[in-house]
């Protein structure tokens, strides 16, 4: 691992052609509790490897130069992880805090079950984006696939493009904002009034994501709250 010094933080360059994923992740885990803003990493040749930069627990910056495999930056706390490429299934799964930024596209289940922090995908995301999200904010520069925000509990999903079929199926209290078209809404998901507080929320999130979008162009979707309680009238449907 070559070490260079910059004015703000030490930059370590890790080449995955010569360093194993396990060694890299251990190096990053060893920084748990490190002084904020003192460590930067540049990861070369990820070549679609799985589980890169998972389980971080320190205010560090990690830049990955290329496409990543499954579950990159999963369970992240505090750290900022930026992928200069595409991400496979489960990017930023169960994100706790910090930021994960994907410059390309992301595959299925991006930000699944995330509890906090911000996930930004500049390109498109495929199916099940934000499935069972529990507090994470997700901003997508492009479009999301089918079954996005399935059983989403809390947090925001902001989609600058279009959303696929069954958006927000069985949704709880997450807020969904879509600028383009929605192929179809899932069970118990309805369009809701876009009030000033919602415009302000979207404006804040797109600024945080570094995406140029007019917050007043978005429409809001959320729970009709009809699935919260068992209704005896529906018994015949089971």
């Amino acid at each position: 691992m070559a070490v260079a010094t910059t004015e703000t933080a030490e930059l370590e360059v890790v080449d995955l052609e010569t360093t194993s994923v396990r060694e890299l992740n251990q190096r990053l885990h060893d920084l748990a509790g490190a002084v904020p803003g003192r460590h930067r990493f540049r990861i070369l040749n990820p070549s679609g490897a799985h589980a890169l930069a998972c389980g971080l627990d320190a205010e560090i910056e990690v830049e990955i130069e290329g496409h990543v495999g499954y579950y990159c930056a999963g369970m992240n706390k505090l750290a900022t992880v930026r992928v200069h490429g595409n991400a496979s299934t489960g990017i930023a799964e169960n994100l706790m805090s910090g930021q994960v930024i994907v410059e390309g596209n992301a595959s299925q289940s991006a930000g699944a079950t995330g509890r906090g922090g911000l996930l930004v995908v500049r390109g498109d995301v495929s199916s099940r984006c934000g499935i069972s999200m529990k507090g994470i904010d997700i901003v997508v520069g492009g479009s999301v696939g089918h079954m996005s925000a399935f059983m989403a509990q809390t947090g925001c999903l902001v989609v600058c493009g279009d959303a696929g079929d069954a958006l927000g199926d069985s949704i709880y209290e997450a807020r969904l904002y879509v600028r383009g078209t929605v192929t179809g809404l899932g069970a118990d998901c309805v369009e809701k009034e876009m009030r000033d507080e919602h415009v302000a929320q979207v404006a804040g999130l797109v600024v945080a994501a570094g995406i140029d979008a007019d917050a007043s162009d978005f429409r809001r979707y959320g729970s009709a709250r009809e699935l919260y309680n068992f209704k005896i009238d529906n018994a015949g449907a089971y």
Binding site: A49, H67, G69, Y70, N105, S107, G145, H146
Partner: peptide
């Protein structure tokens, strides 16, 4: 099934890559 297999091809880093729609 995964990018790992494509990453071994010549010029993969600059390839146009996407996920086929369902």
């Amino acid at each position: 099934s995964e990018w790992r297999s494509i990453a071994v091809l010549p010029g993969a880093a600059d390839a146009r890559a996407w996920e086929p729609a369902p």
